[in-house]
């Protein structure tokens, strides 16, 4: 397998070249070790952190921003979004508060405080 990728870990956006089979992959073009990890993950188990919003039911016109605490499988993005869309939460909320547990091995957490 040969694949050209753009690293999305940082804004530098290194152009990566990946060769090999299975988990035995060689990566070039990376400026830092995180690039290797990204390229291997992207070829074997691509994941993304998802961010969205959830309505705060006890505040007027109020949304709280949320994220997955860890990246989730890319293929599950829309399924997780469907889950998030059905949620409602109650204030007060702090950054890091649990919104939904056990979503592909991680959690949905608040990224904004609501008093």
């Amino acid at each position: 397998m040969k694949r050209d990728l753009t690293c999305i870990i940082c804004p530098r956006g290194c152009s990566l070249h990946v060769e090999g089979e299975g988990k035995a992959l060689t990566v070039s073009g990376n400026a830092c070790p995180r690039g290797i990890q990204y390229a291997v993950d992207e070829c074997t188990d691509p994941r993304r952190t998802i961010t969205s919003t959830v309505r705060v039911s006890n505040r007027e016109n109020c949304m709280v921003s949320v994220k997955t605490a860890d990246p989730i499988p890319k293929a599950a993005i829309f399924e997780v979004m469907a889950c998030i869309r059905q949620l409602q939460v109650e204030a007060p909320l702090k950054i890091g508060d649990l919104i939904l547990d056990d979503v592909y091995g991680t959690q949905i957490i608040a990224t904004k405080a609501v008093e």
Partner: peptide, 11 residues
Amino acid sequence: LTRNIVQCLED
């Protein structure tokens, strides 16, 4: 940014 082309459009 190139990373945004990848993760916002290509994805």
